[in-house]
């Protein structure tokens, strides 16, 4: 019986494999960690203590209260400050190689190893 329980749990895990924040402040932290501060460039909005970062945190809170989703907040800020502000690089025409290159290299390496081991 217990085994069955864990198998079901396993399946549930696969279905909802994302960590959903249930709390407002956890969501603010999560979003602000993914935003890059324009004043202290190189720090996230979450880490930065600059006026800009503090304002952004207030803004995120306001937007969440207005019922905006995480994605909507990102696209609002991208519209204002450009793609640069978000750490999580989106996949588009210009960034597709960023995501694909390591994977292509991995597949290529795999082929080389298979050739060395099985063929030849």
């Amino acid at each position: 019986m217990k085994l069955l329980k864990y198998i079901i749990f396993f399946i549930i895990c696969i279905i909802q494999s994302n960590l959903y924040a249930d709390n407002n402040s956890i969501l603010i932290d999560k979003i602000s960690k993914n935003l890059r501060c324009l004043i202290c460039q190189g720090q996230s909005v979450y880490d930065s203590q600059s006026e800009f970062a503090n304002s952004i945190k207030i803004l995120i809170n306001k937007k969440i209260q207005e019922g905006n989703s995480e994605e909507e907040i990102y696209s609002y800020l991208k519209n204002k400050y450009g793609q640069w502000i978000v750490y999580d690089t989106e996949i588009n025409k210009k960034t597709v190689y960023l995501w694909l290159f390591p994977v292509i290299l991995f597949v290529f390496g795999g082929i080389l190893i298979i050739r060395k081991v099985f063929i030849n």
Partner: peptide, 11 residues
Amino acid sequence: TSEKISVGPPF
């Protein structure tokens, strides 16, 4: 392309 992006921890 003079486009500026950030590649951060999520990547």
